[in-house]
Nucleic acid binder design. Structure first.
Lengths: 200, 200
DNA sequence: CCGAAAATGGACCCGCAAGTCCAAACTCCG
DNA sequence: CGGAGTTTGGACTTGCGGGTCCATTTTCGG
């Protein structure tokens, strides 16, 4: 009862999402007007509302999902293979690198902050992202425990929760202060702590 | 060249700010219309623009400053007296309590996220808040080092930076997931780590 | 090659909320 | 009390931008 898009239609839809992603990255969620997206993608009002019946809301949600997925993709293959200290270090480096490059433009943050207002769906997207992210970290810790590289008495879930929170806060502070110091401190100190308890 | 407000005027101005603060806490930054503030405070357009010539922008900035100050005030007198482990614990409890009570409503977060867009001034306010916050934590750590309760080889600045980031992330996750777990994990694990190195 | 369904373009509508303006009412000092 | 300056009310203007509509063109299965 839903899909009735031809090949071409699918392509147009994708083009609109891509354009919206770019537009939002450049100007921020609040500043984006539908017209801008249309201009950039060479599409018309009719098309946009044809593929996104609920208008802006729906488009924004699609963009949010896209960006949320991207966050994790950008951390691969490191995030899924936290099986040795060098691997953790590589992951750490990737995070720093990624957010340093991204700088002050965090498309998700806008949605993240006002989560629940923009849409109930936005909440779900962010929650899902965090959930997946934390799960990956937890698994990494568990694996390190299985090899004895992290003390067995560490609560993997809590440690992962704390680390994830630290990362989020680090990024947030990067956004407000422009400095990567906080993110670095969190990652380095946390990894040090995790390392320190091992092989007692 | 600036002030020309009588006693009564000053009062009205304050009333508007207070009303705006309340309104934003209830409905979020995005959803606030000037009209709402006027209705709530029993004032008129003329008054608002009389006291805030730059309109919404200026009002929002005043609100942001107010809220930023409040964040630190809410942590007193604990934050300025992190001089013993029980004191740290009391501070931890206050933080949990405060954010648990606040729940999903974080007035600053809206401004925080889009910092730099809403206004260049917003950036300064948030940066200032973080700076003062971190400074207080750093001082707490230094004091504990002076009494030997925290190992001397801990880098107070970095540790404070990491803790602050953790707190911010914890609050952010509280906002998106509705659970306080992350904030708790950060505080408890960080304090444990700080404690553990002492009196070696 | 045909017709139903999908894709496209773009003119138009419409409500909302920020900001403007000015006249009337106060306040306060000399 | 007088009048300069401040405060107040609220009607009015304005522009923006999301959403609607429909006529036209294109696609695609049979």
């Amino acid at each position: 009862m839903t899909r009735a898009f031809t090949r071409k239609g699918e392509a147009t839809r994708a083009r609109i999402v891509t354009g919206a992603v770019a537009e939002i990255r450049e100007r921020g969620v609040d500043e984006v007007r539908l017209e801008d997206v249309l201009a950039r993608t060479g599409t018309s009002k009719g098309q946009l509302f044809h593929y996104f019946p609920d208008g802006k809301e729906e488009l924004l949600l699609a963009v949010a999902q896209h960006e949320a997925d991207q966050v994790l993709i950008d951390q691969e293959p490191m995030l899924s293979n936290l099986t040795s200290w060098p691997a953790w270090q590589a992951w750490r480096d990737r995070l720093i690198e990624r957010y340093l490059a991204q700088g002050v433009k965090c498309p998700l943050n806008g949605l993240l902050g006002q989560t629940g207002r923009r849409a109930p769906g936005a909440q779900a997207i962010v929650t899902g992202l965090m959930w997946r992210w934390q799960k990956a970290i937890t698994e990494g810790i568990r694996h390190m425990q299985s090899t004895g590289d992290i003390a067995a008495d560490v609560d993997a879930d809590r440690a992962a929760a704390a680390l994830l929170a630290g990362i989020q806060g680090g990024v947030l502070l990067l956004l407000s202060t422009g400095k990567i110091d906080h993110l670095e401190a969190v990652l380095d100190l946390t990894l040090d702590t995790l390392r320190s308890g091992a092989r007692t």
